[in-house]
């Protein structure tokens, strides 16, 4: 519970789309199982008055909030409209916007995140699976059945690799407090450092698993900013330079941010780095 709890109401942008409606069902199924409120409204311009999976759809955030009480947003709209959706959510006064959408032009993301920042709205993503606090709240598309409630926080730039690590932890009997997918794009809202700062304030979280990738230096920045015990895993050790491996962020630019030197810098900062996902539970046990 580092961004909210089961009492939060959520508005989904792009509720009438295929992905939006599919995940409203899963999020509300989860909310019901933990006694939470879940998705209370959808926003799709021009489709106000409709209903998706029992959730009323409005033309705008302003309309939705005049009838529903909500504090968080989950955004599924197509890339070209996603920057606008983030700004609308922030402008309407929501505290948190989780942007699942991938392929958002980076200038749109940069401006929308800057605007949300001004409005006091934290952005998770874009191009991320969202967050999951097992037993409490699910915002986004993470498969809940792999997770189990516990004391390890997980922060990741990746989607499915996060599920892999969460699966390894659960199988090893290590539960999770909150799992946050921060997204794989070059410009993202909440960074490792931001999420780590929240974990420090969270009494439930005792240690953090940080899952990074080639590109940038957000992993090092995060580790440098925290006193939390951290275990890191960095994907992309064998990624060839200047080749794009899917995520826009996962590209090595002229030696900057390649995985091996990133791992070296993390080790230098005193962080334990797993050489493969299956090593993470063992290292976590060592830390305690």
């Amino acid at each position: 519970m580092i961004y909210g709890d089961r009492t939060d109401g959520t508005i989904v942008w792009g509720a009438t789309g295929r992905q939006g409606s599919f995940h409203i069902n899963l999020m509300n199924e989860y909310a019901r199982s933990v006694g939470g409120r879940g998705v209370v409204a959808g926003v799709t311009p021009g489709k106000g008055g409709q209903e998706v999976c029992g959730v009323p759809v409005y033309n705008s955030a302003r309309e939705a909030l005049s009838e529903q009480d909500a504090s968080t947003a989950v955004i599924f709209v197509p890339a070209g409209a996603a920057g606008d959706a983030i700004m609308e959510a922030a402008h309407a006064g929501l505290d948190l916007a989780v942007a699942i959408t991938e392929h958002i032009p980076v200038h749109d993301a940069m401006r929308a995140i800057a605007y949300a920042d001004l409005m006091g709205c934290a952005v998770i993503g874009p191009n991320c699976p969202g967050l999951l606090s097992p037993g409490e709240q699910k915002l986004g598309i993470m498969p809940a059945h792999l997770a189990t409630r516990g004391h390890v926080g997980v922060i990741s730039r990746s989607g499915t690799l996060t599920y892999e690590v969460v699966d390894e932890l659960t199988r090893a009997g290590i539960g999770q407090s909150t799992i946050v997918g921060i997204g794989g794009d070059p410009v993202i809202g909440q960074t490792f450092a931001d999420v780590l700062a929240r974990f420090e304030e969270d009494p439930q979280t005792e240690a953090v698993v940080l899952i990074g990738e080639v590109g940038g230096n957000l992993e090092e920045e995060g580790v440098r900013s925290t006193d939390m015990p951290v275990v890191a895993y960095i994907a992309g050790v064998t990624a060839p330079p200047n080749k794009r491996m899917g995520h826009a962020g996962a590209i090595i630019e002229g030696g900057e941010g390649d995985a091996r030197s990133k791992i070296e810098r993390l080790k230098h900062l005193g962080t334990r780095v797993a050489s493969r996902p299956s090593e993470i539970p063992g290292i976590l046990r060592d830390l305690r």
Binding site: L161, E213, V237, H247
Partner: peptide
């Protein structure tokens, strides 16, 4: 063949490992 960039990259790294 994998799904997701991170998991697929991790698969390549594990092959190397």
């Amino acid at each position: 063949i994998g799904n997701g960039a991170g998991l697929t990259m991790a698969t390549l790294d594990l092959i190397d490992h």
